[in-house]
C-alpha cells in the first residue's frame, strides 16, 4: 500500500461524514479499512469526535424562555401601539412630498417674485426655495434618525457586561 492509498482513504473518511460519497468509493474504503489499521483507527477517532460533539449537552438557563417570551410580548405590544402613529407619519410625509412636487413651479415663481421685490440676492432666494422643497425629506430623515437612536438605546443592554 502506498502513501496515496492512505491519503485517499483519509480523504474519503472525511468526505463520508461531511457530504456523503458514491457507493463505489464506499466499497473501496470498506475494503481498505479492513486491511489498514492506521486508517481504521483514524476513522474510529473521527467517529468518536463527532459522537462527542453530537451528544454534548448545554442546559438552557432556568426561566430563559419565559423571560424571553415576556420581553417579546412587551415589544409586540409596543410595536402595535406605534403602528398607527408610524402610518400617519408616512402618510403625512407622502402627502407633503406630492404637494411639494405639484406646487414647485408656483413656489419657484413666488420665491423669484419675493426676491425681486425685496432685492435679496438670487442665491439667497434659490437656497430658500431649496430648503422649502427639501423640508419633507429632512423631516423624514430626522424621524428615521430618532427611531434608530431609540433602537440603539434599546440594544445597549446587550453591550453591558461585556
Amino acid at each position: 500500500m502506498n502513501e496515496n492509498t492512505h491519503q485517499r482513504a483519509l480523504q474519503l473518511i472525511a468526505q463520508a461524514r461531511v457530504e456523503g460519497m458514491p457507493e463505489t468509493d464506499r466499497t473501496w474504503l470498506r475494503a481498505h479499512l479492513e486491511d489498514c489499521d492506521f486508517c481504521a483507527e483514524h476513522a474510529r477517532q473521527t467517529d468518536r469526535a463527532l459522537r462527542l460533539l453530537r451528544t454534548a449537552a448545554i442546559p438552557v438557563p432556568a426561566g430563559l424562555a419565559g423571560r424571553t417570551q415576556f420581553r417579546v410580548r412587551l415589544r409586540a405590544q409596543e410595536l402595535r401601539e406605534r403602528e398607527p402613529k408610524r402610518r400617519a407619519l408616512w402618510l403625512a410625509c407622502g402627502m407633503s412630498w406630492i404637494f411639494g412636487v405639484a406646487s414647485a413651479p408656483y413656489v419657484w415663481s413666488l420665491f423669484q417674485w419675493l426676491g425681486q421685490r425685496t432685492g435679496v440676492p438670487k442665491l439667497v432666494w434659490e437656497v430658500g426655495f431649496g430648503l422649502w422643497w427639501s423640508i419633507p425629506a429632512l423631516f423624514a430623515v430626522a424621524v428615521l434618525l430618532m427611531e434608530s437612536s431609540r433602537k440603539g438605546e434599546q440594544a445597549d443592554w446587550i453591550n453591558q457586561g461585556s
Binding site: P61, V72, L79, A155, W157, I158
Partner: peptide
C-alpha cells in the same frame, strides 16, 4: 443569554 433574547426580539 443576552443574544438569545435579542434574537427573538429581532424575529418579532
Amino acid at each position: 443569554e443576552d443574544f438569545f433574547q435579542e434574537t427573538w426580539i429581532r424575529v418579532l
